[in-house]
Amino acid sequence: IRCIGVSNRDFVEGMSGGTWVDVVLEHGGCVTVMAQDKPTVDIELVTTTVSNMAEVRSYCYEASISDMASDSRCPTQGEAYLDKQSDTQYVCKRTLVDRGWGNGCGLFGKGSLVTCAKFTCSKKMTGKSIQPENLEYRIMLSVHGSQHSGMIVNDTGYETDENRAKVEVTPNSPRAEATLGGFGSLGLDCEPRTGLDFSDLYYLTMNNKHWLVHKEWFHDIPLPWHAGADTGTPHWNNKEALVEFKDAHAKRQTVVVLGSQEGAVHTALAGALEAEMDGAKGKLFSGHLKCRLKMDKLRLKGVSYSLCTAAFTFTKVPAETLHGTVTVEVQYAGTDGPCKIPVQMAVDMQTLTPVGRLITANPVITESTENSKMMLELDPPFGDSYIVIGVGDKKITHHWHRSGSTIGKAFEATVRGAKRMAVLGDTAWDFGSVGGVFNSLGKGIHQIFGAAFKSLFGGMSWFSQILIGTLLVWLGLNTKNGSISLTCLALGGVMIFLSTAVSA
């Protein structure tokens, strides 16, 4: 259960009878995928790494000078000259100064003066180019299975845990398959586009800190620079940016070097996208990844198990997540596992009318040892309800109150669905055939309105939902006002479609 501690969480529900669903994975976010007769899966884009970055340009932001020398000439005696002028490691300046009897010249006039100092770069920052084909995306998957609280967001041991898996995709191999043991396998067909235009970005490294910066900004930095990788004795261009020549006297000129420019660069980098280094690879934390999940090989585990009949206890007080759902960790005293956990939410304890829904599909106890633990997640209705676990006299209950409203949740879900469709863009549509167009249209309606429909009408039977949709269509056909007619027709059509397409 990876997503319960992530604030940016998206719930995606598969269409009834569908074998695939489109998701948008982004750094700092987590996606929970639910479908009829399929286990619930949490998917998170953990890291995006980039390798084989080529150094484009380096800037010196802290330097020192040494070996200063000057040469001067009297008027009419030609130009002052130093051998160091031809050495690229030196920074030199030529000027004219007033000369006369007082400073060793027989004539009054302008004399030539040249001053040089050896330039040494102490600290530099480097910009590297990123090729999209060198990106690698690491995705962690977790099935809502027989897990306890100690396994949440624990990325170790996934090789031997059938509840978890790690997959890596690249532009050259965008397809992967996550093996989930008894739950089958989940196929991923990803489109490795981060949403960032790397043709316009460089990877900047300064003092063990890293950013993504725009090329134009990078090339306009007014500091000494050299092109390409460091060859040991780089040729620094624009050395004068960190060196200041003071007022010249008759035979000498003082040279000083400016202080470190790291603070000024940090100020200019305010708002830039931060990154990290992992050995020789860069780690990015921006952008998104679009994936199509193929769920035809994914299956529920323990459908044929019998119900657990022994007593359950709450190991922890049920807690609310950031998303309005409830996490419950229970301990089973029996030894008759594997068995299914009898769990439901009810409005009252007399009729036990089921409300809400299970995020953890078909929760089971897989071990036959005593005191096995299991964590599950529920989506309670707004208002008061009861969490009921167990059967008969051994069942345990917990009162729950959820604040908020169904309308607010439906609106929030619609906005999130619209954002998801905007990110998917043209990849969500198939114009290759008439059937493809209608299929894409259905998927689009489901992406945007599916979660809201589930919130508003999830407790009704599909037949009642179709009746309401048919009534809206009838009202649309018999209303003389054009805008009201079109609105009723659209709402009725969407409702009829979703009542037959969205899983219960």
Rank of each mutant, 00 (worst) to 15 (best):
I1T: 15
S7W: 00
F11T: 02
F11N: 07
V12C: 07
E13K: 09
G14L: 01
S16E: 01
G17F: 05
T19W: 10
T19E: 07
W20S: 03
D22Y: 12
E26S: 01
H27I: 15
G28W: 05
G28C: 02
G28Y: 02
G29R: 00
G29N: 00
C30Q: 08
V33G: 05
A35P: 02
Q36P: 12
D37G: 15
P39I: 07
I43F: 10
E44T: 02
L45K: 08
T48I: 09
S51Q: 08
S51D: 08
N52R: 01
M53K: 03
M53A: 01
M53F: 07
A54F: 04
A54Q: 09
R57L: 02
E62M: 11
E62W: 09
A63P: 01
S64F: 13
S64M: 06
I65T: 09
S66I: 14
D67C: 03
D67L: 13
A69G: 09
S70M: 08
D71W: 09
R73V: 07
P75Q: 02
P75H: 03
T76A: 15
E79A: 11
E79Y: 07
Y81L: 15
K84T: 04
Q85R: 07
Q85H: 11
D87T: 02
T88P: 14
Q89Y: 09
Q89V: 06
K93L: 01
T95P: 00
G100Y: 06
W101L: 00
G102R: 12
N103V: 03
G104L: 03
G106W: 06
L107E: 06
S112D: 10
T115R: 09
T115E: 08
T115V: 04
T115S: 15
A117I: 04
A117R: 00
T120A: 14
T120Y: 06
K123E: 08
K123G: 04
K123P: 00
G127L: 01
P132N: 09
E133Y: 09
E133A: 05
N134I: 13
L135W: 06
L135R: 04
E136A: 10
E136V: 09
M140G: 15
H144D: 07
G145Y: 06
G150R: 02
G150C: 01
I152M: 03
I152T: 12
D155W: 04
D155K: 02
T156Q: 11
G157Y: 02
G157C: 03
E159T: 08
N163H: 14
N163P: 13
E168R: 00
E168V: 01
E168P: 00
P171V: 03
N172E: 02
S173A: 15
P174S: 10
R175S: 07
R175Q: 10
R175K: 11
A176V: 07
A176I: 06
E177D: 12
A178E: 03
A178H: 04
L180Q: 08
G181I: 04
L186A: 01
G187A: 09
L188Q: 03
D189R: 02
P192R: 00
P192H: 01
R193I: 03
T194L: 05
D197Y: 05
S199R: 03
D200I: 01
D200M: 11
D200Q: 01
L201A: 07
T205Y: 02
K209S: 07
W211T: 06
W211A: 05
K215I: 08
W217D: 10
W217L: 01
H219P: 00
H219V: 11
H219K: 02
D220E: 12
P222C: 10
P222D: 11
L223P: 07
A227M: 15
D230C: 00
T233M: 09
P234F: 12
H235T: 07
H235A: 00
N237E: 08
N237I: 11
N238Y: 09
E240G: 15
A241F: 14
E244K: 10
F245I: 14
D247E: 14
H249I: 07
H249T: 03
Q253I: 04
Q253E: 11
V255S: 00
V255K: 02
V255N: 02
V256I: 15
E262H: 09
G263V: 00
A264T: 11
T267N: 15
L269R: 13
L269I: 12
L269T: 10
G271C: 09
A272R: 06
E274G: 05
E274D: 14
E276M: 14
D278I: 15
G279Y: 09
K281N: 07
K281M: 14
L284Y: 05
L284V: 15
G287A: 15
G287C: 14
K290C: 06
R292D: 01
L293W: 04
L293R: 03
M295T: 10
D296C: 10
K297N: 12
L300E: 04
G302S: 13
G302L: 06
V303W: 01
S304K: 00
S306H: 15
C308F: 11
A310F: 00
A310S: 14
A311C: 08
T313L: 00
T315S: 13
K316P: 01
A319C: 08
L322C: 04
H323F: 10
H323G: 13
H323P: 04
G324W: 09
T327K: 08
V328M: 13
V330K: 09
A333P: 05
G334Q: 06
G334F: 04
T335Y: 13
T335L: 13
T335M: 13
D336H: 12
P342E: 07
P342Q: 13
V343E: 01
Q344Y: 01
Q344V: 13
M345C: 10
Q350P: 11
L352K: 11
V355N: 00
R357M: 03
L358C: 12
I359P: 07
I359L: 03
N362L: 01
E367K: 11
T369D: 15
E370I: 04
M375I: 06
M375Q: 00
L376W: 10
P380Y: 12
P381D: 06
P381F: 06
D384Y: 10
S385F: 09
Y386Q: 05
V388F: 12
V391S: 00
D393S: 11
K394S: 13
K394G: 03
T397H: 03
H398L: 01
H401M: 12
R402P: 09
G404Y: 08
G404H: 11
S405W: 03
S405C: 07
I407S: 04
K409Q: 14
F411P: 04
R416G: 09
R420D: 11
M421I: 10
A422V: 15
L424A: 03
L424W: 09
G425F: 10
D426M: 12
W429R: 10
F431L: 14
F431D: 07
G432P: 01
G435E: 05
V437A: 11
N439H: 13
N439D: 12
S440R: 04
L441G: 01
G442A: 15
K443H: 14
G444R: 00
I445R: 00
I448D: 12
I448W: 10
G450T: 08
F453S: 11
K454I: 13
G458V: 00
G458A: 10
G459W: 08
W462K: 10
F463R: 01
S464Q: 15
I466G: 01
L475R: 01
L477K: 04
K480R: 15
I484T: 15
S485M: 13
L486T: 01
T487E: 05
T487H: 09
T487K: 13
C488D: 11
C488E: 08
L489D: 12
L491P: 07
M495G: 04
I496S: 00
F497C: 09
F497Y: 14
L498Y: 11
A501T: 15
A501V: 15
A504F: 13
